[in-house]
Structures are given as C-alpha cells and as structure tokens.
Amino acid sequence: MGESFQITEQFSGEQFRCKPGQSVLKAMEQKGLKCVPVGCRCGGCGFCKVTVLGGDYECGKMSRVHASPEAINQGEVLACRVYPLTDLIIECQPQSIVGLDSEHTTTKAIR
C-alpha cells in the first residue's frame, strides 16, 4: 500500500481516502458514503458529475455529452473517471445530477 489522498466533498462536508489509481467515486462507494450519485461508474451516464475545486488529478475517458473539453477545463468532470494525484476538494451540487437541459443533445453521428 502506497500513500492515499484525502478527498473532501464540500457540499456535504464528507471526507474519504482514495488510493492512487482508484477513482474518486469508487473510493466513496467503498466508504459507504453517498455524497456523489452513482450511475454507470464508467464515464457514460453523467450521474456522478462533480466540480474539482482544488488539487491535481488525471481523467479517464468520459462521454463528451456529460464532460465536454470546455467543462473538463473548468474542472467539471465525472467522479468515476477522476484519479487523484494529490488531495482533492470536490463539490457535487444535488441539482447537478442529470437531466439539465443544457446537456441534452441528439446524436446525429449515426453510421
């Protein structure tokens, strides 16, 4: 076991440890916490969207509908695909779960 990082979810005040290489969402689930909603856990559905307010991290692949390049630049990412490199402060607003009109797109790219 190497070091682990402290994750703080600002809205609820919940804190939990996350191992290197582990996603923030998985670490939260293992602690039995519910401060971030859990959906597909695979970057596809957008349920676990959070804003990272502080700290360094890497991201796995995420659906562009739920995490556009612009959103990623603002720290708006999916917790299931966030791998911390330092302690992180994140925020998950209850109303930001899913279904915002701005997120709706119709995929035309059918082949």
């Binding site: 597909c40 695979c42 596809g44 659906s63």
Partner: peptide, 8 residues
C-alpha cells in the same frame, strides 16, 4: 451491468 463506456 455496464460495459466500460457506461452502456447497460
């Protein structure tokens, strides 16, 4: 269950 892209 979900595939690695979140498709059920």
């Amino acid at each position: 269950f979900f595939d690695p892209s979140g498709n059920r």
